[in-house]
C-alpha cells in the first residue's frame, strides 16, 4: 500500500484542463522530484495532495485517508501532509517559536510547554534554535524557509510537500535550505518536491516525475532519466534548464 496514491486525478480551472488523469504512487521514504515547464500542472498536482486544490475527478489516498472529488476529511489529511511554500508564508505577527507551536496547540491541543519543547527540537534540527524568540522579518530568506520547514515538521507529517522552496531565495541562501531537505531525505522522510534544482533532484531524489501538458509524461530513476531521457520533450526540457 503506497503512502500517497493518486488514480485518474483530473483538475480544471475554468476552461483550462490542468491535470488530465494523474496516476501516482509514492512509497514511504521516497524522495520525489516533480519537474516540468511552468503550466505543466506540477504545482497543481502538489497542491491537490493536501487538498489546497480540490480535485474534479479521481481518487486521492494519503496514508489511508481518502479524498474523493474534493471532499473528505481535510483536517485529518492535512495532519499527515506538511507543506512548505515558495514564499515561506510564515505568520509575521508571531515569533519563530510561536509559528512552529501554533498548529500543535490549536489543532493537536498540545500543552504549551510540550509544544515549546517540540518547537525547540524542530528549530534545532534546521539549525535555528537561537531564533526562537525572533520575528520572521528579522530573519534572512533562507532562515525563514528553514523555520517554515520546522513549522511543517512539528506536526509530524507522514509526507512533506515542497513547492519550489528555493525559487524565491537569493542564490547564496539556496544551499542552506537544500542542506536541510537533504538531511530530511537521509532520515527517511517522504518528500514530494516541485523543483528547478536539477542537480539536487538528481542527487537526492529517488524518483523523477516529468510533467507535460497535465500528464505524467515520463517517470523513473533520476540518474537514468537525466542520462537517457526517453522522450524528446524531457530531453528538450533537460537541455533548456541545464
Amino acid at each position: 500500500m503506497p503512502l500517497v496514491k493518486l488514480r485518474g486525478v483530473h483538475k480544471t480551472f475554468g476552461s483550462n484542463h490542468v491535470l488530465k488523469g494523474i496516476d501516482l504512487d509514492v512509497e514511504a521514504g521516497d524522495v520525489v522530484a516533480l519537474i516540468g515547464r511552468s503550466g505543466s500542472g506540477k504545482s497543481t498536482l502538489l497542491r491537490t495532495i493536501n487538498g489546497l486544490e480540490s480535485i474534479d475527478r479521481g481518487e486521492l489516498v494519503v496514508d489511508g485517508v481518502a479524498l474523493d472529488d474534493g471532499f473528505g476529511d481535510l483536517r485529518t489529511l492535512r495532519q499527515k501532509v506538511g507543506m512548505v511554500f515558495q514564499q515561506f508564508n510564515l505568520f509575521p505577527h508571531l515569533t519563530v517559536g510561536e509559528n512552529v507551536m501554533l498548529a500543535l496547540k490549536v489543532v493537536k491541543k498540545t500543552a504549551h510547554a510540550e509544544a515549546g519543547d517540540i518547537a525547540k527540537e524542530m528549530l534545532l534540527k534546521v539549525g535555528l534554535a537561537e531564533k526562537f524568540s525572533a520575528y520572521p522579518d528579522q530573519l534572512s530568506g533562507g532562515q525563514q524557509q528553514r523555520v517554515a520547514i520546522a513549522r511543517a515538521l512539528a506536526m509530524r507529517p507522514r509526507v512533506l510537500l515542497c513547492d519550489e522552496i528555493t525559487s524565491a531565495l537569493d542564490p547564496e541562501l539556496v544551499n542552506e535550505v537544500l542542506a536541510v531537505v537533504r538531511q530530511l531525505a537521509e532520515e527517511g522522510m517522504t518528500l514530494i518536491m516541485v523543483t528547478h534544482e536539477m542537480r539536487f533532484a538528481r542527487e537526492v531524489g529517488n524518483k523523477l516525475i516529468f510533467m507535460h501538458h497535465g500528464l505524467i509524461h515520463e517517470s523513473g530513476v533520476p540518474r537514468q532519466l537525466f542520462a537517457e531521457p526517453g522522450t524528446p520533450e524531457l530531453a528538450n526540457f533537460i537541455g533548456a534548464v541545464s
Partner: peptide
C-alpha cells in the same frame, strides 16, 4: 496575503 490562508490551511487549521 493568500499565502497566510494557505499556510494555515496546510497546518490543518
Amino acid at each position: 496575503p493568500k499565502g497566510q490562508w494557505e499556510a494555515s490551511a496546510s497546518l490543518a487549521l
